[in-house]
């Protein structure tokens, strides 16, 4: 069935993934439960710099029941980012019949527990000046420089002891790999049969196009044929503007001067002048209604109104006090 229709764990967020993994584990009997924590594919170790130890290394345990003992790395378990060692604890594991080994006759086998590479330290053997050998356990290792390893057939980082970089811990020698049926001999792989010798002709057939490499019914658009430009794309694609000419700069300067010469605040003289003209006009008005309106909107009217209210309030207070006094006198007389 296509992955499109099945629940793919990798697609879920981390907390869901943990939840489902836990659920799946809980539903199993203890013998079938998975050992280590599930590590998503993008977080699995692939490079020797991440592992720090490889198959064949001697290591010292710094955690667990084997703490202080020295063992050997037997292999790597990529899907839990952990390593198999020769003196590891074992736990019973049930194996389905179709996966039985040749000399197996029980369902339960003792399966070694793995340890994290962080819980071990690499052990290296050094030689003193007098020729005697001694072991060191590197607290941590760092990687500086690279070299081509003939046995691994690839570039390998040089492993050094942290803070003692002159001490190089060589990688263990891997088991020699033999060619399989799918292997190509190196001389065939390295043979050169293509030389670019013309800008007109190409050895490929004339009807070949890059589009023919793609699936013609693929629904997803080709990733380089961008349909939408993002902000960054637009910035990259926009050419820088032309610098301003001298004429334009002069225009900007002139505009600035005009803006600065504008009057924004009224001067005292102007205010006086405008005030006198308004007062003169209002003084000549003879209409009584208009006078009342002008009185009402003027500042004086509000002051008078407030003063009047204050006076009325004082009067009211006085009346209330007098009434209270009178009431007291009446109640005292009636009590006697």
């Amino acid at each position: 069935m296509s992955k499109r229709y099945t629940g793919v764990l990798e697609r879920l967020p981390q907390h869901f993934r943990d939840f489902f993994m836990r659920r799946a584990d809980q539903s199993q009997i203890p013998a079938f439960r998975s050992q280590g924590k599930y590590i998503p594919e993008e977080k699995r170790y692939t490079r020797p710099e991440q592992w720090k130890v490889l198959e064949g290394d001697r290591v010292m345990f710094v955690k667990g029941p084997n703490k202080g003992k020295i063992g050997k790395v037997l292999g790597l378990q990529p899907f839990t980012n952990s390593i198999y060692t020769d003196i590891a604890e074992t736990e019973p594991l049930a194996v389905p019949r179709q996966l039985w080994q040749e000399d197996q006759n029980e369902y339960l086998i003792d399966y070694p527990k793995t340890v994290s590479p962080d819980d071990v330290r690499v052990v290296a053997t050094l030689v003193r000046e007098d020729g005697t050998e001694y072991d060191i356990a590197a607290e941590d290792v760092i990687f500086k420089g690279k070299y081509f390893d003939e046995d691994y057939k690839k570039m390998m980082p040089i492993r050094r002891v942290k803070y003692h970089e002159h001490i190089i811990i060589p990688w263990p020698r891997p088991d020699p790999a033999e060619d399989c049926v799918f292997s190509t001999p190196p001389e065939v792989a390295e043979e050169r049969s293509h030389v670019e010798n013309s800008i007109l002709q190409f050895e490929q057939p004339a009807d070949f196009t890059i589009q023919s490499l793609r699936d013609p019914i693929m629904k997803r658009p080709y990733k380089w044929d961008k349909q939408v430009l993002k902000k960054g794309d637009i910035t990259k694609l926009t050419a820088p503007g032309i610098p301003y000419s001298e004429t334009k700069k002069a225009m900007f300067e002139e505009r600035r001067q005009i803006r600065e010469s504008q009057i924004t605040e009224m001067s005292a003289e102007v205010m006086e002048f405008i005030g006198s003209r308004v007062a003169e006009h209002l003084n000549n008005v003879t209409d009584p209604n208009f006078k009342q309106y002008v009185d009402k909107v003027s500042g004086q009217y509000r002051k008078q109104k407030l003063a009047r209210r204050e006076k009325e309030k004082q009067l009211l207070d006085l009346q209330i006090k007098e009434a209270e006094k009178r009431n007291k006198r009446v109640t005292r007389a009636s009590a006697q």
Binding site: V181, F182, E190, R192, S193
Partner: peptide, 22 residues
């Protein structure tokens, strides 16, 4: 055992040297 393999995929660098026919 018949599908067990010890090699790796062809690298781009290797393939760049090969002709169309290859």
């Amino acid at each position: 055992s018949e599908v067990a393999f010890t090699g790796r995929a062809w690298s781009v660098q290797e393939l760049r040297r090969k002709s169309w026919e290859d």
